[in-house]
């Protein structure tokens, strides 16, 4: 496709606007984290690392970070096991209702979080499961599974089924074939999926508000401290940490899965929407 100079200019402006629109607020938050003054106003009076120390000493923020990390790790682990198994079933076996299952696995990422949250909350209350780390993990796993599943299915569809047949032909049973052949083929796709799942879980708010009970994950902690002027500088610092902790895995995942096809968490949503 060739573009005229006008169109090219327009695209440049649009790109610049988009990036500005998305990233300028993030830069402002990052700057406020180093702001000497408690009051958020321009221009910034001076720079300080004081708030980082305060954030570190803040037991609420520390507990929240710890809970978020455990929840994200738990949800990612659960998603890795279930997402991989589902992808193997869908990509490697023919069975009745396969397309439906594929659709149902992808659907949760397109469902409004508030609905998922409500539904889970109602279920936990009805069954008498007390809210806490476990329920957060289950709540996050609903959409983390999709990311792992999408990455794994895309990879499996691109690798020849003959590899697994060749392995069986050479004497390997199903488990040996998975360990020596299928898993090494899947490894980078699974890692990419896991990193994305981790990032998604780490900054999730809506489902978490319904499944966390009295516990606070880092995003929830931010939400509840935002309205307290005293805490605002510390919140800014936590926000910067959150940005970093979500950016790094996504960056690594993108690099890892350059060749898998579906990578982004939104690809799942688009696929699910298209399937409707």
């Amino acid at each position: 496709m060739t573009l005229g100079p006008g169109a090219r200019w327009l695209l440049r402006v649009a790109t610049a606007l988009t990036l500005t629109f998305v990233y300028v607020p993030l830069v402002i938050i990052a700057l406020y984290a180093f702001n000497e003054s408690r009051i958020q106003a321009w221009p910034i009076e001076g720079l300080t690392l004081e708030w980082f120390g305060r954030a570190l000493d803040n037991p609420g923020a520390r507990d929240a970070l710890w809970l978020s990390l455990r929840a994200a790790l738990g949800a990612t682990a659960l998603a890795l096991v279930l997402g991989t198994l589902a992808s193997l079933a869908v990509a490697r076996y023919r069975f009745f209702g396969r397309e439906t299952i594929s659709f149902l696995v992808i659907l949760p990422i397109a469902l409004p979080g508030i609905v998922t949250g409500m539904a889970l909350n109602a279920t936990f209350n009805t069954t008498g499961i007390s809210l806490g780390l476990l329920t957060i993990v289950v709540g996050h796993a609903t959409f983390c599974i999709v990311v792992v599943y999408n990455n794994a299915v895309a990879r499996l569809r691109r690798t020849s089924q003959h590899l697994e047949e060749a392995s069986a032909d050479l004497g390997a049973d199903a488990w040996q074939t998975f360990r020596h052949i299928t898993f090494p083929q899947l490894r980078s796709a699974l890692l990419a999926g896991a990193l994305l799942a981790f990032a998604l879980s780490f900054d999730e708010v809506i489902v978490t508000t319904f499944t966390a009970g009295p516990d606070q994950t880092l995003p929830i902690w931010i939400l509840s401290n935002l309205s307290r002027p005293n805490q605002l500088p510390v919140v800014n610092v936590v926000a910067v940490v959150l940005i970093l902790l979500s950016t790094i895995p996504v960056y690594v995942a993108t690099r890892l899965s350059r060749d898998t096809g579906a990578v982004s968490p939104t690809a799942g949503a688009a696929q699910a929407a298209g399937a409707r």
Binding site: H162, S167, A172, D173, I181
Partner: peptide, 19 residues
């Protein structure tokens, strides 16, 4: 199953393990 049979196969696309 294939792994219990004393035969081996050469596939059309070779199916060599790339890793």
């Amino acid at each position: 199953p294939p792994y219990a049979r004393e035969v081996n196969t050469v596939f059309q696309d070779y199916a060599l393990f790339p890793h």
